[in-house]
């Protein structure tokens, strides 16, 4: 090999090595970036907990995990912001899913301090299993409404209309909103063939089938329909056919921070929490 050829060969080899290194470098940079983000979080958490000492509500701090029904996503996210403003030392995490799914997760040992359910039956199941500390209290109520595509092209105005339109979106038969919808349909004497019902795994997914997907109509919570805004139209279900869902909340027996958990439960029923719930369309407890 001549000197020039050797040099060319060497250069090509370096280029080849560099090329091979590119993905490794990219991954390394992404990893470092991720780590840096994590550190930042830790920093803010650290500084805010030092700041908390100066505040009147200071003594409560630590981590708090709240499991809540999907239909509470907006309400609890906002209540959570207010809560953290009041207790800056607290690191609050939410898990939102169907109450029935959360119940199963909690039965399987999912770690959480507070559970807010869309159905009293789910909390009762946990109480029976000895997973609830104290007595659950109802903090809000909700009702059902029919949602349709914007402009309601199929002219759905009553539960009876759902029998002969296209695909109807309902919650899974075991999910609270699915159970309530079934009660409501039964009360109206309406039976939709199951071959035209798409079953969402939770209240949010059920609404999405109408707002994002091609379901013609659905039965969801009043609050979820309101949150969807222009993405759906609504048709009210008369009171004698409607179902009122009660939302109970409780501290869980396995909580590592029962005081903090109790503070959150109290906060949800405080005037601040009530105001948020009311603004989003929830009814006050009976």
């Amino acid at each position: 090999m001549t000197g020039a050829a050797a040099r060319v060969w060497e250069e090509q080899r370096i280029v080849a090595i560099r090329r091979r290194l590119v993905p490794v470098v990219v991954l390394a940079v992404l990893t470092l970036f991720g780590a840096a983000c994590g550190e930042n979080d830790a920093d803010t958490a650290g500084s805010s907990s030092t700041g908390a000492g100066a505040r009147a509500e200071g003594p409560l701090s630590g981590e708090l995990t709240v499991a809540a029904a999907t239909s509470l996503t907006n309400a609890f996210t906002r209540i959570g912001e207010e809560f953290q403003a009041a207790y800056p030392g607290v690191e609050l995490t939410f898990t939102f899913d169907a109450s029935s799914a959360l119940t199963n997760q909690l039965l399987e040992g999912a770690p959480a301090d507070v559970f807010a359910s869309a159905a009293e039956a789910d909390l009762a199941e946990l109480t029976e299993a000895g997973l609830v500390a104290g007595v659950p209290s109802v903090f809000a109520r909700n009702e059902l409404v029919i949602v349709t595509k914007p402009g309601n092209p199929e002219g759905v105005s009553r539960l009876d209309d759902l029998v002969d339109v296209g695909i109807v979106s309902l919650c899974g038969a075991e999910v609270p909103c699915g159970r309530y919808a079934q009660q409501s349909l039964d009360a109206a004497g309406v039976a939709i063939p199951e071959s035209r019902v798409t079953r969402g795994p939770n209240a949010g997914a059920t609404l999405n089938a109408v707002s994002q997907g091609d379901a013609v109509a659905g039965v969801v919570y009043v609050t979820d329909a309101a949150a969807a805004g222009d993405a759906v139209d609504t048709a009210a279900i008369p009171a004698d056919r409607n179902v009122v869902a009660s939302y109970p909340i409780a501290v869980l027996a396995s909580s590592g921070a029962p005081e903090l958990a109790a503070a959150f439960v109290a906060f949800v029923s405080s005037p601040v929490g009530r105001a948020v719930l009311e603004e989003l369309g929830f009814l006050p407890p009976a």
Partner: peptide
């Protein structure tokens, strides 16, 4: 979606049955 007999395949049925 998740429609019995139309789009509810085994994995969807598993997910639904879990609850």
């Amino acid at each position: 979606g998740n429609i019995a007999g139309r789009t509810r395949t085994l994995p969807l049925a598993v997910y639904l049955a879990l609850e």
